[in-house]
């Protein structure tokens, strides 16, 4: 729950795609506008299938749409 480590460039990609609206993207990938908003904000990590559909809509590779931020968790030994 909360912010995930998966970041995305959907907002930028929408802007580059003739300022595509969230609703247009939602219709194109078969999701609700609320889901697109949640993905953009990083509040929801989509399924692999939905992620591929989003990438396909922008005609870009998946790794250009979604990025994984690896955070090292250092455990201090007592």
């Amino acid at each position: 729950m909360g912010k995930s480590q998966i970041k995305n460039n959907i907002r930028r990609l929408r802007f580059n795609a003739d300022e595509m609206t969230q609703q247009q993207l939602a219709d194109a990938v078969g999701a609700s506008r609320q889901t697109i908003i949640a993905i953009e904000k990083g509040n929801y990590s989509p399924s692999l299938e939905l992620a591929f559909r989003i990438a396909h809509t922008f005609s870009t590779p998946l790794e250009e749409v979604f990025l994984y931020e690896h955070i090292e968790i250092i455990k201090k030994k007592k």
């Binding site: 999701a31 609700s32 506008r33 889901t35 929801y44 989509p46 939905l50």
Partner: peptide, 8 residues
């Protein structure tokens, strides 16, 4: 009515 998607 908005259709139910995977997040829903």
């Amino acid at each position: 009515i908005p259709a139910e998607d995977e997040r829903d």
